[in-house]
Design a protein around this nucleic acid. Structure first.
Lengths: 179, 179
DNA sequence: CTCGATCTATATCGGTCCAATATAGACAGG
DNA sequence: CCTGTCTATATTGGACCGATATAGATCGAG
């Protein structure tokens, strides 16, 4: 799922600038399961424009930097549809945290505990954000995606809270240091 | 969490070639939460060698391509430890599937159903793999990571199975076409 | 009131990483 | 016999991210 396709999809829901597209990932909305950086959004929008899949209108506003507002074209809608009909790339969940847990025995126990607790706090924050944007869902798709995210974070948190104590106790270095 | 750090971590558990490191991600073992391609593993191992964090011995075997077996050095262990003490990069879960669900209303209903069912099958396969490698866990860390993965996939599947019908029914185009 | 921080907004660059491809001999199965 | 798969290393093109640059507006703290 490349950035061009992601931008096209977002633009099917309404016009936006590159800046606004980026912010959609960070605020609520796009459920933590998609993201892209400025460094890929702006070139993507340029190329979509070249290819005639989006159009731009430049709004020179006083007292503000110019805005380039992008709209999807008919050709863009067709192209986006076509990409949804192709086989989807697989999910990729990269977790430095889980990787680090494989080496729990090498860590100072305080560090291990701090990692787990820090991860729990992060997950709680994301879950809270999803709960906050739950009511704002405007389509069944948004509600589905929101529920999907909440389900995962709830399950993660349940696991982390229930395993935290055991895991720390069973980890050699942590257990030793706890004596 | 860059590929050099990942390679270092794996090598703390024993010597390996680049090829073997790559396979650790695909078979069981590393729980779907880390991965790297040949295109990043080989350069990473070269640079780790230059930096003295790993050492290589070339095993020229008859009737087989040469093997370059990498071992972590004392400096490498120190460096790996240091990177675990730094703040971890955040998880990133990229899901083209969830993104596509946001546009369920644009899809032909058969396609929507095929996407969901295909995703369920994939998740089932990954869960089965995690269950299969469950017993092989040799450290508390591995057991923890395995349980974490199983928890997530189980929660995902439960959500997908329970929501599948409702979601398809509520999606405008799907519902229309179902009449 | 003023200074630093934050916000809107676009853009580029270095470096990292992935997917695909190349090479090449071994071995197994149809 | 021939195709496919496995072991094993390596490179390349393109995609992407994180950091950085620019620049005026606005806003809160002191």
């Amino acid at each position: 799922m490349d950035v061009r396709t992601i931008c096209l999809g977002i633009l099917t829901r309404g016009d936006a600038t590159g800046y606004e597209i980026k912010n959609l990932f960070e605020d609520d909305g796009y459920q933590h399961f998609v993201e892209a950086s400025f460094g890929s959004i702006y070139p993507a929008l340029n190329r979509l424009t070249e290819d005639g899949l989006v159009s731009v209108r430049e709004e020179a506003q006083e007292k503000r930097p110019d805005r380039k507002v992008y709209s999807i074209t008919r050709a863009g809608r067709t192209a986006f549809l076509a990409s949804l009909l192709k086989p989807l790339p697989e999910d990729r969940h990269r977790s430095p945290f889980v990787f680090a847990m494989l080496f729990a025995d090498l860590l100072p126990p305080e560090r291990l505990i701090a990692m787990i607790d820090g991860y729990i706090v992060q997950a709680e924050a994301k879950l809270a954000q999803l709960n906050a944007s739950h009511a704002k869902a405007k389509t069944p798709g948004e509600a589905f995606a929101n529920g999907f995210g909440r389900t995962i974070y709830e399950a993660m948190l349940e696991y982390l809270r229930s395993q935290r104590g055991n895991f720390i106790r069973q980890t050699p270095s942590a257990a030793v240091a706890a004596e």
